[in-house]
């Protein structure tokens, strides 16, 4: 009986924490993710991410969710910051690419963002941008950062 009460309390507190994540995270608005790379096994994720980076045009307009290290070019002199998620290989040791994202709304740096180099999960709509060499790259717009408290 005591065990059942403890288990029920643990389940209820987990639900409460989950609700608090969404409630307190100004970026997280629930929406349907069409391609969730974070659910995949490591090697399928690496293969899928490689295709995403090499052929981003196939994903334009889709809501994609990715996970990786948070990198930022901090905002300065009135210029907005540049935010990116570095995606790692299956072994988790090396980055295989970086996806820039533009957060939804008007979050303020640094209070509305995780710490740099934290592992984040971010979802957003894919659009194409060109890097300095003119190569098409994916970028997530209207992005939400989903992070744990």
């Amino acid at each position: 009986m005591r065990l059942a009460v403890v288990a029920a309390a643990a389940i209820l507190s987990a639900f409460a924490a989950s609700a608090a994540e969404v409630a307190n995270d100004t970026n997280a608005v629930p929406r349907k993710v069409e391609m969730d790379f974070t659910r995949l096994s490591k090697i399928v994720r690496q293969a899928q991410v490689t295709r995403f980076l090499e052929s981003p045009e196939k994903y334009v307009g889709k809501i994609v969710q990715i996970s990786g290290d948070f990198y930022v070019d901090k905002p300065k002199d009135g210029e907005p910051g540049r935010y990116a998620c570095a995606l790692k290989d299956a072994a988790g040791c090396c980055a295989i690419g970086e996806v820039e994202f533009r957060p939804r709304g008007a979050p303020k740096w640094p209070q509305d963002f995780p710490d740099e180099y934290d592992t984040i999960t971010v979802n957003g709509k894919v659009e194409i941008m060109r890097n300095g060499d003119g190569v098409p790259c994916p970028r997530l717009v209207e992005a939400d950062i989903v992070r744990k408290k």
């Binding site: 090697i43 293969a47 072994a91």
Partner: peptide, 20 residues
């Protein structure tokens, strides 16, 4: 590429080559 070690490992052990 910027990930020479990863590329070498992938080529030597075929970790994801067949999936890409």
């Amino acid at each position: 590429s910027s990930n020479v070690s990863g590329d070498v490992c992938t080529t030597l052990f075929g970790s994801v080559s067949i999936l890409t």
